[in-house]
Design a protein around this nucleic acid. Sequence first.
DNA 1: TCAACTTAGTTGATACATCAACCCCGAGCT
DNA 2: AGCTCGGGGTTGATGTATCAACTAAGTTGA
Lengths: 146, 146
Amino acid sequence: MTPDLLTAWQAYQRMRVLLNGRINRELGRETGLSEADYDILFFLEQSTQTSVRSVALRCGLAWEKSRLSHQLRRMEQRGLIEKAPGAVIRLTDKGRAQIAAARDCHEAAVQRYLGDVLTAEQLAALATISGQVVARLHQDAPPHGD
Amino acid sequence: MTPDLLTAWQAYQRMRVLLNGRINRELGRETGLSEADYDILFFLEQSTQTSVRSVALRCGLAWEKSRLSHQLRRMEQRGLIEKAPGAVIRLTDKGRAQIAAARDCHEAAVQRYLGDVLTAEQLAALATISGQVVARLHQDAPPHGD
DNA sequence: TCAACTTAGTTGATACATCAACCCCGAGCT
DNA sequence: AGCTCGGGGTTGATGTATCAACTAAGTTGA
C-alpha cells in the first residue's frame, strides 16, 4: 500500500464518517427522517408514476431485499407510505409533505458542506473518481448480490 | 443546487454505499470482524502502549461514548479485548491475531477498489477534497459533539 | 402433470448506532 | 465539611443493517 493510497484512504474515511454523521443528524433533528427514510421517499417522489413496484426501489437504491422489506414495514407503520396489492408502494400525503421539507434541509447541507467548499474542478473530479470506483465494484463482483 | 453539485453528490453517495458495503462484507466474511471491530483493534494495535484508556479511543475514533461502551462490551464478550480497572483497554492475543489477518484483507480491498482504479493525481485530489470538507465540518459545528 | 429452479418478498435473530437517562467521582466553591 | 457541577462511563430503548431460513408464484423441462 503506497503512502499516497493510504493518505487518500484515511482522508476519505474521515470525510465519509463525519459528513454522513453530520447530515444524518441534521436531517433527523430537523425532519424526523433517517437517511433510509429519505432515500425511499426521494425515490418515490422523483418517480413519474404515482406508484412504484418494490423491485424498482430495490434496483434503484441497490438495497438488499430484506433491508427494503423491513424499512417499508416501518415506514408504513409510521404512515409515510402505503402498500397496495401486487408489491406496489405509494407515497401518502404525510410522506409527500415530509420529503418536501426534508429536501430543503438536505440540499442546504450538501451545499454547505460540499458546494461551498469545493471548486467546479473538484466536483467534477469527485464525480469521475466515484464513477470509476463504482464501475470497478460492478465489474468485480457482478452476480447480483448487493 | 447546481447540476454539477448534484451530479457529484449522487456519484459520491453511490460510491460510498457500494464501496463500504463491499469492504464490510468482505471483511466480515473472511475475518468475522465488523468495521467497528476493525477500527477499535486497529487503533489498539497501532498504539505504542500496551494499554489504552477509553477516552483516548473515543478521541481518536471520534465516537460517541455510548457507542464505544456498547462496542467494547461486545468485544470483551467475544474475547477480542479485555478491560482492566481504570477504564483501560488491552488487546488480547486473540484480538491481536484477528487484526493482523484482517489488515491484509482490508488493505487488499483498498488496493483493489481504489489503488488499482485511480491515478496518482486522483488519489491526491481525493485526499485534498476530503480534507477540505472535513475542515468545513469542524469549523461549522466544532464544540466537541459528534 | 409434476418436479426442480428461479426470483420477489417476508420474517426472526443478531449486531450496530443513537438518544436519553443514569451513576460515579473529583474540582471548585461557600 | 457539604455543594454543585461537569465529565467519563454505563445502561435500556429504539431504529437500522445484515444474514439465513422461509413462503409464494412463475418457468422450464422430463
